[in-house]
């Protein structure tokens, strides 16, 4: 039935329903951010994540596909297209509406935390010694 709605995945609805919404983990957050620009294939996501985090986060392939599996099964990401390049399989993934919503919620949550932190630092009276950029 629904098992074949999305190529490559079958979703155990009962388990999904039973699971509470959890915070996005760092790799998931970065993958969703990468896909927010448009459909990308696995290697593109890797490069994009490196770029987004300014080289701080280098996703490994296993981590990437662990995150993609999880996101796909939660319905946040779906298969966009498949193509064969140089006889290699390439799958493109895109953000679903739910994925965009979730990414936004997570981004807002993070932003509010960041703002609280920054405003408190300002309240203390300027930058802490050695932290460089304030104001």
């Amino acid at each position: 039935m629904e098992a074949h709605d999305q190529p490559g995945y079958s979703v155990e609805r009962s388990i999904v329903a039973a699971m509470p919404i959890r915070r996005l983990q760092e790799p998931s957050f970065l993958v969703l951010t990468a896909l927010a620009r448009g459909p990308q294939h696995g290697y593109g996501v890797l490069k994009d994540v490196e770029e987004i985090s300014a080289g701080a986060v280098k996703l490994r392939v296993g981590t990437l596909y662990g995150a993609l599996d999880r996101l796909a099964s939660e319905g946040l990401v779906e298969l966009d297209a498949e193509e064969v390049v140089d006889s290699r399989l390439r799958r493109y993934y895109r953000l679903t509406a739910a994925g965009a919503q979730r990414l936004e919620a997570e981004a807002m949550r993070r932003r509010s935390q960041v703002e609280v932190a920054l405003s408190r630092l300002r309240g203390v009276g300027g930058p802490l010694p050695g932290t460089g950029t304030a104001s």
Partner: peptide, 26 residues
């Protein structure tokens, strides 16, 4: 198939075996 493609794409040109961290990750 998909993962092999990405792994090979991400590998350095002279690489002939998976690095320890790649293996650990998989």
């Amino acid at each position: 198939e998909e993962m092999v493609a990405v792994l090979l794409q991400a590998a350095t040109p002279s690489q002939s075996r998976p690095t320890v961290s790649e293996a650990a990750d998989l």
